[in-house]
Amino acid sequence: MRILHVLDHSLPLHSGYSFRTRAILKAQIAHGWTVAGVTGPRQNEAGEAEAACERFDGLDFYRTPTPPVRRAGISEWREVNAFARRIDSAIEAFRPDILHAHSPVLDALAAERAAKRHGLPWLYEIRAFWEDAAVGIGTGREGSAKYRLTHALETRAVKRAGAVAVICEGLRDDLIARGVDPARIMLSPNGVDMHLFGDPAPCDAALARELGIHGAEVIGFIGSFYDYEGLDDLIAAMPVLVARRPDAHLVLVGGGPAEAALRRAAEASDARAHIHFTGRVPHDRVERYYGLIDILVYPRKRMRLTELVTPLKPLEAMAQRRLVAASDVGGHRELIRDGETGTLFPPGKPAAMARALADIFADRAMWDERRDVARAYVERERSWSSNISRYQPVYQSLL
C-alpha cells in the first residue's frame, strides 16, 4: 500500500505536530507500507530554504513553494490553491493508493481537490480544530465571523472525506454532535515512539549544578509557552509550594509567545530564586532535562481547546518514568488516571496546584509504583508500534 500524507509542516521543523507525523510515518514503514509526505506553504515560514523535495531522517517530503503574501482571507485561499497544485504533482511522482490529509482544514481542502482530480480515496485526520487552536494561541476569538467560517469548513471537510480520524474522544464526540456518523470516525490516539523516549534519562548532576537545583525537589515543564498552557498559574503556585517545601524549584524548558510575560511574573514572584528558565533546548538534548525533573506539571487552563484535545507531552514524560501532575481538563482526563498514572488538580487554582504538588513530594513511598504503572500504560496502550494497526481496516475500506 502506498500512502501520501498531506501535512501542514514536518521535520526538520520541531513541534508536537512534526513528531507525531514522524512517528506515524516511521511506524507505517515498519508495517510494510510505502509512505511519503507533501507539506504546505507554511513549511517555509520559519526561514527554511525552499526545496522541491527533501529527505530527512529517512522520510521523503515534497515541498510546496510559498505563494506571495496577500491580505488575510485571500492569502488562505492562495495557499489552498498552491497546495492543491503541489499535491497534484506529488501524486504523479509518487503514485499513491490513498491520500491521508492531516489538519488544519486548509490541508483537507487542498487534498479534496487533488483526490477528486485523480480519483483517489482520502482520509482526513484531525489533531485539533483550527478555529479552537487559533483561540488558544491568541490569534482568534471564539464566536467571531472567522471562527464560524472555519468551523463550517471543518464540518464540510469531515462530511466529504471518505473517513475521518481523530486523536481523542473529545474531538470524536464533537463531530458526532455535528451530525457525523460515528461509524465513519476512527480513533488514532497520541502515542510515543519508544525508540525516542524508551529509556529513562539519568540525572545530569553537572547540569543540575549549572541551573542551581542540585539536590532540590524539582518540578518542571518542557514545551511551548502558550497562554493556554497555564504556566502563569504554575508560577503563581510557587510561593505556596515553597512555603510547604522550601527545597522546591521550578524549571521551565522551552519558549514561545508567552515567554516574556512569564519571565516578568517570575521576577515579581516572592519565589523568584526558585524559578529557572532554560530557553529553547535542541531536541537531542531534551532528555537531559527530563532527567532533572521529579514531577512534570501541565497546568492547562480550562477552555474548549484543552477540553477537547489530548496533549502529547504527558505521555512522553510517562515514558521517561517521570511523575506527572496536570489540571483536571478533558484532554488530560483521557490520558491520566488520578492517583494511578498521575495526579489531577483543579485548573486555574494555583493554591490547589501547590497543595497537590506538595503532597506528591511528601509521599515518596509511592513514586516507584506510580512511575511503573504510568510507563506500562504507555507501552501497552500509547506506543506507536501498537497504535499504527488502527489505520489498516480504514485504509482497506476506502480502497
Rank of each mutant, 00 (worst) to 15 (best):
T343I: 15
G230N: 15
H274A: 07
A326T: 10
A266F: 09
A260H: 12
V253R: 07
L312H: 04
E259R: 09
L250E: 03
A265F: 04
Y228P: 07
P246T: 12
I293K: 10
E259D: 07
P299F: 08
D247K: 13
G279L: 02
E229T: 12
F225V: 14
G279Y: 01
V251A: 06
S327G: 14
Y298H: 14
T306I: 12
V240T: 15
T341L: 10
G279N: 02
L262R: 03
D328P: 02
E334D: 14
A325L: 10
I219Y: 08
G256M: 04
V242A: 10
I275D: 00
F277A: 01
R280G: 00
A260P: 01
V281I: 12
M303Y: 02
V240K: 09
I293A: 09
D338V: 03
R321G: 04
T343C: 15
E307M: 12
V240G: 05
A325T: 05
Y290Q: 01
T310W: 01
G339A: 04
V297S: 06
G256S: 07
L323A: 12
A268F: 03
E229R: 13
I222L: 15
H274C: 05
V286P: 00
S327K: 04
L308E: 15
G223R: 04
G255A: 09
V242W: 06
P314D: 14
V329R: 07
V251N: 06
Y298T: 00
I336F: 05
Q320W: 08
T306G: 06
D247E: 11
E334N: 13
D284L: 02
V240F: 15
A237L: 06
V329E: 04
P311I: 11
R263G: 01
A268P: 00
P246A: 05
P314I: 14
H274D: 02
A317F: 14
T310F: 04
A317D: 11
D232G: 15
A236N: 08
R245G: 03
L292W: 06
D270S: 14
R285T: 00
R245S: 09
R280I: 00
